[in-house]
Design a protein around this nucleic acid. Structure first.
Lengths: 210, 210
DNA sequence: GAAATGAGTGAACATGCGTACACTCAAAGT
DNA sequence: ACTTTGAGTGTACGCATGTTCACTCATTTC
């Protein structure tokens, strides 16, 4: 980023370039997967010479890890916001389906990144994503454990339901991401599917009592 | 494959080289993903000069499609064998869990390929895999529809259960594939998880009746 | 047995890559 | 005002890649 603003505090400009690199990597990853994106391509797309890349990340792997971090912080913020919404308590399922579809649509790029690189990315990136998802399962379990019908379940059961929910979230996120752009009907269909699946999990669990 | 057997019918030798290329691609894909494997690497690993590659596949994309085909024919053979096993009828769930884990262990490479390239691979490969999985959902639906408790369900419900089963199969296959080698305990754990999840789906569906 | 076929060879090419190095030249620190 | 700092530049390198082309020579065809 040679000089777009006439001047900016030195570190502000640096941060701006850093974000440009991150955004470029995210965008380029969408077409062919992070692993096929080269350092030179990212730099070029960010409007910077390849060597400048190293001022911000010491390798493409590190860039990948930064993207994982960015993606999950986005995800976490959304879940936190959703929890504040009071109507989540009386109908978690519909709310979750709504939140999921909306969240994925809003930051499609990050969700796509996680879904793709979780299995297709470089080793270090895959590991980081798995770790974050495991964390996320535990976090969700805490939230779930406070819910009316669930509060007297065993820890393992709650953990398992949480795992199923996250797994379904990932699967549904994959679907939303693959969704063509101007098709709100498909979106509703996926939402409905997500609702059904979650209801299935909850109903199944209640009638089964581990 | 210059000449390993002193002589072999011309086309037999060609087929052998073809298989060597397929096997090499599968093996190399396991470490870094199909998309990062180069034509030259595959050729080298198959013991053949790069130009010879073109005698068998017109591009890496075509090689990828051939691998998809090979993987799914493996998968289908396994399901067909499993259906012959009579005890599948009285307890589909446990049987399915067994079959899944066993099948995945036996042809780990192919399952890993499908799981990875389904989301991480080149466009054409992803499309092919999705298509095969959709087919597979429909095929499984036919099998399920014949089952005792399910025969009077609506077509959509059967299709949806089938989709859930396949989705779970894929997820569990991912887990088995990621499983370290000498850990039969983990294996049993995954099997148990698969059993629970499938039971959940079935129980949930029965008590819900669409 | 001579001719045709075609799987596999080997050299050559243009291109894109990651990284090293010496550099510029404003902003920040003094 | 001066020096120092460090984000971004430009050149140059060695290397792996996909694809081309003219080739060999054992097997198949006649």
């Amino acid at each position: 980023m040679t000089e777009s603003a006439p001047s900016a505090s030195r570190q502000a400009q640096k941060e701006r370039t850093r974000q440009a690199i991150l955004a470029s990597a995210l965008e380029l990853s969408h077409e062919k997967g992070f692993a096929q994106v080269s350092l030179r391509q990212v730099s070029r797309h960010a409007g910077v010479v390849p060597t400048a890349f190293y001022r911000h990340f010491e390798s493409m792997d590190q860039l990948g890890l930064a993207l994982v971090e960015q993606s999950f912080s986005t995800l976490r913020r959304m879940i936190r916001d959703a929890q504040r919404d009071p109507h989540v308590f009386d109908n978690i399922i519909d709310a979750a389906a709504d939140v999921l579809v909306e969240a994925v649509k809003q930051s499609k790029a990050h969700f796509a990144f996680v879904a793709r690189e979780r299995v297709g990315g470089p080793e270090v990136v895959r590991t980081a994503i798995r770790h974050e998802l495991d964390l996320f399962v535990s976090e969700l379990a805490v939230v779930l454990a406070r819910l009316p019908n669930i509060e007297n379940w065993s820890t393992e059961d709650v953990q398992m339901v949480s795992r199923l929910f996250v797994r379904n979230m990932v699967s549904n996120a994959e679907e939303v991401v693959e969704m063509p752009d101007g098709r709100p009907d498909l979106e509703e269909q996926i939402k409905e599917g997500a609702r059904r699946q979650m209801r299935l999990i909850v109903v199944g669990f209640r009638d089964w009592r581990s």
